Simulated assay, not measured.
Amino acid sequence: MLRRCLGQIALVLGLLLTVLPAAAFNPDEVLSDPALEARARALTVQLRCMVCQNQSIDDSNAELARDLRVLVRERLTQGDSDEAVIDYVVSRYGEFVLLKPRFSMRTLALWGAPVALILIGAAAVFVFARRRVALPEGKALTPDEEARIRDLLEKP
């Protein structure tokens, strides 16, 4: 009984949480042409809200996000290509506005750092493992040394 009740509560909460991103989108922003609207939605998912920073402008309720959604739709209705719209927004707000940065010389460190760190870590593990194997073992104790240690341990 309790399990069923908890399951129903989880279902209701899950449904409520799936509606939240839709609440960020205003009906007056929707374009009448379904093809243009689909392109606009695809573009707004790629752009970062400068206020929320870890949300796309498609999911954000911030006023700036709304302005950017409207700007994207205006550019599309003027006949701009998807790439031209992205370039226009990036020219105004910088590369940071892209949720997935482009690969360029400026972002080389961003894209290359994880690979470089993994390679450095693998090399360090390899070097330390080889050193550990190469450590010389100590000499065995002589019978006199063993007897002396036994005597020391047996004394109270």
Rank of each mutant, 00 (worst) to 15 (best):
I57Q: 06
L71P: 00
C52P: 02
Q53R: 13
R102Q: 07
C52H: 12
V90M: 08
R41V: 10
D67Q: 15
E74G: 11
V90D: 02
M50V: 13
A38V: 05
Y88T: 06
L99W: 05
V97A: 15
A22R: 06
D58V: 05
K100M: 09
A109E: 10
E29Q: 11
A109D: 11
G7H: 04
A38C: 03
R75K: 09
T77K: 13
E63P: 01
F25H: 14
L64N: 11
R102V: 03
W111Q: 02
A24D: 04
F103D: 08
V89E: 01
C49E: 03
R41L: 09
R69H: 13
W111C: 00
Q55Y: 12
A84W: 08
L11F: 04
R48Q: 07
L2H: 14
Y93T: 00
D82Q: 13
A42C: 03
E95R: 15
T44H: 07
E37T: 03
R69Q: 14
V85G: 03
D59A: 14
L98F: 04
A113R: 06
A35N: 06
T44M: 10
L36N: 01
L108E: 02
S104M: 08
A42L: 11
L47W: 03
W111A: 01
E95H: 12
Q53I: 09
F96T: 13
S32P: 08
A10V: 07
L16C: 02
E29T: 01
R92V: 08
R102C: 01
M50F: 09
I9V: 07
A109H: 14
D67K: 12
E83K: 14
G14E: 00
Q55E: 12
L6D: 07
G79Q: 07
Q46S: 04
A109N: 08
P27C: 13
L64H: 12
V12N: 10
A42T: 04
V89F: 06
W111G: 00
D80S: 11
M50Y: 10
A84T: 09
F103A: 12
K100P: 00
R48A: 11
R4H: 11
L13S: 00
F103N: 05
D33W: 12
L17I: 11
L11D: 01
P21H: 14
R4Y: 12
F103I: 14
V72C: 12
L31I: 00
R39D: 02
